[in-house]
């Protein structure tokens, strides 16, 4: 939810293919965000780039890999490196080959954990557009789902300890330096969490604004999603006898799709329940 662009990696040993692909993708956007295109001319160069650049190493949304580069199977080995050596199951990987005979589609799909296969002849601008768009959507949904599960596990492990809950929430409730322009707050029972480390007054001001604004109902208990025109968004979970009121207020450069809103809603609901059952001091 806090991406500023979608990192895409193109690996091909033909400079023309890289240039043309880069040009074709230059104006693509997904959820209103541009792509940030990284290129490498070989498997080795791509690996160096992944080890050298945290965005390519950690947050790559999509990768298009040529097969035949320094060896006949360099691209496939690179796919294996991304999936197994990097442990990255999230990036959407497409194999793009100029010599399908050397890497037949069925064989490649069966053997490698890829998301698609196409020949360079098929690689029209429209084809790239549809692949990029659908794969970024997939990447975001899948990534949010994994991150939600991770948070849920941490909340569950925190048990009834409020201190532990706060520790589990710190990656969400406190902004990291490079994300200062996408602030976010967690508010439980009218209390801004981590208030000495975030701008709590700003959260109170925004909540006041959101109070009378219409939102999208998320469930019959009164939970809702609200977004204002400045990009600030609120997932609000209403108080019930079984849970505290919990809110996730954040600024994101784009409007999330329904599935992402639902995932965030489930996290905030879980926070409301965990908080309700926790104690100040353990």
């Amino acid at each position: 939810m806090f991406f500023k662009h979608w990192p895409v990696l193109l690996v091909d040993d033909e400079p023309d293919v890289l240039t043309i692909s880069r040009l074709a993708m230059k104006h693509f956007d997904v959820y209103g965000l541009p792509l940030k295109i990284y290129t490498a001319a070989s498997k080795a160069e791509a690996i160096d780039l992944m080890n050298d650049n945290v965005e390519v190493g950690c947050s790559l949304a999509v990768a298009f890999l040529d097969v035949v580069m320094e060896t006949d199977t360099a691209g496939l080995e690179l796919c294996d490196y991304i999936r197994n050596d990097m442990g990255n199951k999230l990036t959407q990987i497409f194999i793009r080959t100029g010599q399908p005979g050397l890497a037949p589609e069925r064989e490649v799909i069966d053997k490698y954990d890829i998301n698609g296969y196409f020949s360079k002849v098929e690689a029209t601008e429209d084809k790239l557009y549809s692949l990029v768009k659908s794969s970024v959507r997939q990447y975001l949904s899948y990534g949010m789902a994994l991150a939600t599960i991770d948070l849920s596990n941490n909340l569950m492990a925190a048990g009834a300890s409020r201190r532990k809950i706060l520790y589990a929430l710190s990656p969400v409730g406190i902004i990291s330096p490079e994300q200062a322009d996408t602030p976010r707050w967690l508010i439980v029972d009218d209390q801004v969490l981590f208030s000495d480390e975030v701008d709590a007054d700003e959260a109170v001001r925004l909540l006041e604004q959101f109070r009378n604004q219409d939102g999208i109902p998320l469930d019959p208990a009164g939970d809702r999603y609200v977004r204002n025109e400045d990009g600030y968004q609120l997932i609000q979970v209403a108080r019930t006898p079984a849970r505290s009121e919990a809110m996730f207020l954040f600024k994101s450069p784009f409007s999330p799709p329904d599935i992402v809103i639902n995932l965030m809603h489930s996290f905030v609901k879980q926070l409301g329940i965990a908080w309700h059952h926790s104690k100040e001091e353990d």
């Binding site: 939810m1 947050s59 949010m144 991150a147 990656p171 409730g173 902004i175």
Partner: peptide, 10 residues
Amino acid sequence: FAGKFYGGEV
């Protein structure tokens, strides 16, 4: 280093 889905580890 770089969590971006729900934010980053601070």
